[in-house]
């Protein structure tokens, strides 16, 4: 289980997060919504380790990971995608996936020369796994293309596939539906849901309420860097405060 408590972060004089907290239950999809500037992305950066909070704690399965660098979080099975796709454009689709495979002996220089058998065996296993993942989301035929040649939606899928290569416990998705065509959005939702059923925990930031309604087991609403409310999707849409926050607080 992932839990975030009392996270505060200011950029200069602007408080992006004030005492923010949420927890993501294992094998569940947790949604984070809120109007622009609510601090959702900052929160995800804190969980992913790219921003260190001024105060507060990030705990993963009882372990304090607040200060852990991002690459070590990945080793614990915590991985994220980005709001604007960050594909490694000059690498092929397949290479993008292979890169994410943890524990490759071939990433140590000398092992390539002295343990070539092991490196090759691992590489073949990684390729097999990558192809299976690509097959599942329908990108298998693009495996050899450079990642920059993909469409916006395909890049989002690629990021998700890349995250899967590390056999993650938790995937953080920053707006998986942004800039993606509606049919692709449905496809991405399908993939997320079937992965949840296989035991992956998700935290999703999204503006598309249909997607949130379809996917999320629990939704947290943020506004101006603070928790507003949380609960099931039907609970929070009935909440007057949420409506006010989205419409700019008409009080």
């Amino acid at each position: 289980m992932l839990s975030v408590t009392g996270v505060t972060k200011a950029f200069g004089g602007i408080a992006a997060l004030r005492e923010a907290q949420f927890s993501a239950d294992t094998r569940r999809i947790t949604g984070i919504i809120g109007p622009n500037g609510a601090g959702k992305s900052t929160l995800l950066y804190v969980v992913g380790g790219l921003i260190t909070p001024d105060a507060g704690k990030v705990m993963l399965d009882g372990e304090d990971i607040t200060e852990l660098p991002p690459f070590k979080r990945a080793h614990l099975g915590l991985v994220r995608t980005f709001q604007i796709s960050r594909e490694l454009s000059e690498l092929t689709v397949l290479e993008n996936l292979l890169l994410a495979r943890p524990g490759q002996s071939g990433e140590t220089i000398w092992k390539n020369f002295f343990l070539p058998g092991r490196v090759r065996a691992e590489e073949e296993a990684a390729i097999e796994r990558a192809c299976a993942i690509l097959e599942r989301v329908g990108l298998r035929h693009l495996a050899d293309n450079p990642a920059r040649a993909l469409s916006g939606g395909q890049k989002k899928l690629l990021e998700l596939c890349r995250a899967l290569m590390i056999d993650p416990k938790i995937i953080l998705l920053d707006e998986p539906g942004a800039g993606v065509s509606p049919p692709m959005r449905v496809q991405i939702s399908e993939v997320i849901r079937s992965l949840r059923d296989e035991g992956v925990t998700f935290v999703i930031i999204e503006h598309d309420m249909d997607m949130i309604a379809r996917l999320c087991d629990r939704v947290y609403v943020f506004a101006e860097g603070k928790n507003l409310t949380d609960g099931s999707f039907s609970d929070i849409v009935a909440d007057q405060r949420v409506i006010d926050a989205y419409l700019g607080g008409l009080d």
């Binding site: 690459f71 991985v79 960050r86 590390i166």
Partner: peptide, 8 residues
């Protein structure tokens, strides 16, 4: 940044 988030 991507390389780091993927565990490198």
């Amino acid at each position: 940044v991507v390389a780091a988030t993927l565990g490198k």
